[in-house]
Design a protein around this nucleic acid. Structure first.
Length: 204
DNA sequence: ATCAAGATTACCT
DNA sequence: GGTAATCTTGATA
């Protein structure tokens, strides 16, 4: 079992702030998934903010539905959706109840459980050291490596299965900002944040 | 009931 | 650089 005694786990107070603040502050923090006999962890190195109040690209823009209900809860919940008939994407819900804001996790630098992640991503193929960055350098890839599915949507990040460990805030000089990837509406918003130069980024 | 779009990825030329 | 894969969701009738 994962020993959490030596770490500070992020609380409701952290998540309940405005989505752009939470998004920036999530960079460098460590995402943890505790399975019955496995531990998977990794540094968050790329995120995007979504805010249904002003942002047409957000699932929550047109109001509450069955799928996006979790996004409207108070901060500190895990929101996972299925898309393109193929991929899952995972998010951190932020803000107060009914805000409809969340942060998409787009890239992670693996720490614990790397072999498990590689196995889940590439069932047969052998992966060379050089290609290791390909394991978790995209939102769909993260969910496959960590095995996040819709069953995990609604999980409380203050529990013992999925949570995030605090780390020192990333230096401003290491933080990049850009437009978000893979959307057509509200493209102009520069709500993608990433660690400059990290090899696990989904784009250069 | 039907239908178009989708916060992506892998594989092709 | 282009595009097929694959299916759920939400909107419209």
């Amino acid at each position: 079992m994962f020993n959490t005694e030596n770490f500070t786990i992020l609380t409701k107070k952290f998540y309940s702030r405005p989505v752009l603040s939470v998004a920036r502050d999530l960079l460098g923090k460590i995402l943890v998934k505790v399975e019955s006999d496995k531990l998977l962890t990794g540094r968050i190195v790329e995120v995007e903010a979504y805010d249904g109040n002003t942002d047409q690209a957000a699932h929550s823009f047109n109001g509450r539905t069955e799928r996006n209900e979790v996004m409207f809860r108070e901060g500190g919940y895990f929101y996972v959706y299925f898309t393109y008939g193929v991929h899952h994407c995972c998010n951190i819900v932020t803000g107060k109840e009914n805000h409809g804001t969340a942060v998409l996790i787009r890239a992670i630098e693996p720490i614990d459980g790397i072999e498990i992640m590689v196995k889940r991503r590439f069932a047969k193929k052998k992966l060379s050291e050089k290609e290791l960055f390909n394991v978790t350098n995209g939102p769909g890839k993260i969910c496959k490596a960590f095995r996040f599915t819709r069953k995990d949507s609604g999980t409380e990040l203050t529990g013992k299965k999925i949570f995030i460990i605090d780390q020192p805030k990333l230096k401003k000089s290491k933080t990049g900002v850009s437009e978000r990837i893979g959307i057509t509406k509200s493209k102009e918003l520069k709500w993608r944040f990433f660690e400059i130069g990290n090899p696990y980024l989904s784009r250069k």
